[in-house]
Design a protein around this nucleic acid. Structure first.
Length: 437
DNA sequence: GCGATCAGAT
DNA sequence: CACATCTGATCGC
């Protein structure tokens, strides 16, 4: 697509219309309540949740894209100076509430931007998306696929969320007298919590801001902010660590559950000591058979498989992910048959360029050339170039601005805490309820 | 002083 | 290693 027309999850100047796939913070960089660069298209659920993230946002700028319906907007083509129609459709991304992919069609051809997405074959909801996509792309070739390449590496292989949820349930059931804390973000993994609540017939504690989101999503009698009524709590992921668990265990026996597609144990769970050089990290995936059933044998506290001490005795990692794993990405690409692919996540070495693994599934001739370029870019990425969220027709890269100057003089503590308090005021207080009182 | 934005940590 | 998020430092205004 030509530059200067459409941006997806990218909020720099220069586009005529802007699309948001979902409300996770890493897709909102640059977006603020003072937004005025143009209309912002999003799903209905995202629009409903929008004021929580951006309280003072001018809601008249929001345009709701109904899932499964074609919409159209007339945009000025910067090159020929005339207007051209861009048709677009939102399709359920099965990521977090409100998350969608966008399919664009116009003179430029056909482009699909997945945003973050999960492509499970099992659920009925997934089948709906499949049918929708098939119908929308009937008779056209997909020229460009912008792909969620979070787990674009064959080592990333994990079961369906349904299977992972059963693992979580087994872990909880095998600790009938323990409190349980589950790490979640501000949005996402609701179905896991709903499943636990339904099977165990119990409410689940969440922090106040999260309860507000649950209510907006229509879950009214399942979640609570009263700690006394349940032994199961969903806590912010950033507050979930060994120290928290140890603190809780001085009060009551408590286990922690970390739902994550990441194959490595997060550093927070490894204890303070460094991994010794003669014992390299072990892939936790060795404990995650892809055909997991309800058997609980695959889940053990993390302590055993890594060289960390027994600090992480209480923590279980379960492969519950809202991103597609590698085999799912492969199936997805075989399904949509794109001519070219670009990854939308590109800030680290572990996010492999999709063309490396899937180039052979594309119809482009210059895959190897593009790969070389891409690897070269990656090598220099940390030196001076940041890859941005992809924007059609744009290079996707920009120079780093000013160099940050390190100052010897640190700020006064008063200023620091003020900044934090202001942020909390805006975004809602994080409350973990880990204090023993 | 304030908001924006970055790097770094979890 | 980094899923998304928070924190603190520093920049420009």
């Amino acid at each position: 697509m030509e530059s200067g027309m459409v941006s997806v999850d990218r909020w720099t100047a220069g586009s005529q219309v802007y699309f948001l796939t979902h409300l996770h913070a890493d897709h909102l960089c640059g977006l603020t309540s003072k937004w005025s660069r143009g209309p912002l298209y999003c799903s209905r659920i995202t629009a409903k949740l929008f004021p929580i993230k951006f309280p003072d946002f001018d809601l008249s700028l929001l345009r709701i894209v109904e899932i499964g319906h074609w919409h159209s907007v007339s945009l000025l083509s910067p090159s020929c100076g005339s207007y051209t129609d861009v048709d677009f459709m939102a399709i359920d991304a099965h990521h977090c509430p409100g998350a969608v992919m966008y399919l664009f069609r116009g003179e430029f051809g056909c482009t699909l931007y997945t945003g973050d997405f999960r492509w499970e074959s099992t659920s009925e909801r997934a089948q709906t998306g499949r049918t929708m996509l098939l119908k929308a792309m009937k008779d056209v070739k997909l020229d460009m696929l912008y792909l969620d390449n979070t787990y674009c590496n064959p080592t990333y292989c994990f079961p369906s969320r349904e299977a992972a949820a059963k693992q979580v349930l087994n872990i909880i059931s095998s600790h009938p007298n323990h409190d349980v804390i589950i790490a979640v973000d501000t949005l996402g993994k609701e179905n896991l919590l709903l499943y636990i609540s339904r099977v165990l017939k119990t409410k689940i504690w969440v922090w106040p801001e999260r309860l507000q989101i649950m209510h907006l999503l229509g879950f009214h009698d399942i979640f609570t902010t009263k700690t006394s009524v349940t032994r199961i709590r969903a806590v912010p992921r950033y507050s979930f660590n060994i120290e928290t668990l140890e603190g809780l265990n001085t009060i009551r026996p408590t286990i922690g559950i970390m739902p994550s597609g990441l194959p490595w144990a997060p550093r927070a769970f490894r204890g303070k000591e460094k991994l010794s050089s003669e014992s390299p990290p072990v892939l936790l995936h060795n404990r995650w058979p892809t055909d997991v059933t309800t058997s609980s044998t695959s889940s053990k506290p993390n302590g055993g498989s890594l060289s960390a001490g027994r600090d992480d005795h209480y923590i279980y990692t379960v492969p519950y992910s809202d991103h597609s794993c590698f085999p799912e990405l492969q199936k997805f690409i075989e399904f949509v048959m794109p001519i070219n692919i670009k990854g939308i996540v590109s800030s680290s070495a572990s996010n492999v360029d999709p063309l490396y693994h899937f180039g052979s599934l594309c119809r482009i001739q210059q895959a190897s050339v593009l790969l070389c370029q891409s690897l070269r870019n990656k090598r220099y990425e940390k030196v001076g170039v940041i890859n941005m969220r992809s924007s059609f027709g744009c290079t996707g890269t920009m120079q780093l601005g000013r160099k940050r100057r390190k100052r010897q003089i640190s700020s006064a503590g008063i200023h620091v805490s003020r900044v934090r308090l202001l942020r909390r005021e805006r975004q809602g207080v994080k409350i973990v309820d880990t204090d023993p009182d």
